[in-house]
Amino acid sequence: MKKYSDSELQQKSILYRLALLKYIKMAGAGHTGGDLSCVDILNVLYNDVLNVSPENFHDKNRDRYIQSKGHAVEILYVVLAERGFFPETDLETIGKYKSPYIGHPTRKVNGIEFNTGALGHGLAISSGIALAGKRDRAPYRVFTLIGDGELAEGSNWEAAMLAAHYKLDNLLAILDHNTLQITGRISEVCSPYPIDEKWKAFGWNVITADGHNILWLRKVLNEATNLKDKPTIIIANTIKGKGVSFMENDTRWHHRVPSDDEYKIAVKELETQLI
């Protein structure tokens, strides 16, 4: 894998955000807020952490990434395209009749492992993959991205128990802790707090990180799978809508598509951050 500098990755995040808005605008649909909150996480995963590429995607020892918060598929498409899994022009078909690039991940798209989109599935799937890896003494690691509103799905906690029971230290969950779901603040809808203590009580390593700090994400995501005997969750503190000031921290942007004017302003704001 090409080794990027921190500032190169930071620039990539801005380019990803620009591409993301472009394709959401073109498709006329997308989960804008929750896409933007995990751009930096996906950037670091795919450019600095995951041993996965178009060349080794069918190698049984590749690292696995399962996106449990499947609705943020647009950013996954953007990152996979940039990593060469398919031509970027494919993204012009997002949401179009007969296009495989639909509003949630499917295996029809190269680079995607599982068809997600119903919340609360990724952790169990990832645990199964990690368990197979343990039994086979395989070198791969399994990463899964979960939304914080998604924590209300009880299936997560079934899987959390199992992953700790089987000491799945090859499993790393990342929580996109943007504090918002559709209806409002997660603390107000049906609070999952205290999140860290819950995972600790379930037998997990818990690491809290700034989910937009490339330096920290690189360090934390690369080091976490060296921890032994327990699965790890990284509670990544993020901002929903991150990168476009008027989209930040505003539930309305969960799945809003920018108007022409909003789009222009957003692009301008992002472009000023490019070196």
């Binding site: 049984k60 990832s126 199964g128 086979d136 899987a159």
Partner: peptide, 26 residues
């Protein structure tokens, strides 16, 4: 014993975990 997995009383989990296992060729 290496070829049985017990998940406890958790039927949603059993199917999700099974899918994960199957995806690796089991």
């Amino acid at each position: 014993p290496e070829q049985i997995v017990e998940v406890g009383i958790a039927e949603q989990n059993i199917v999700g975990v099974a899918a994960g296992l199957a995806s690796t060729g089991k």
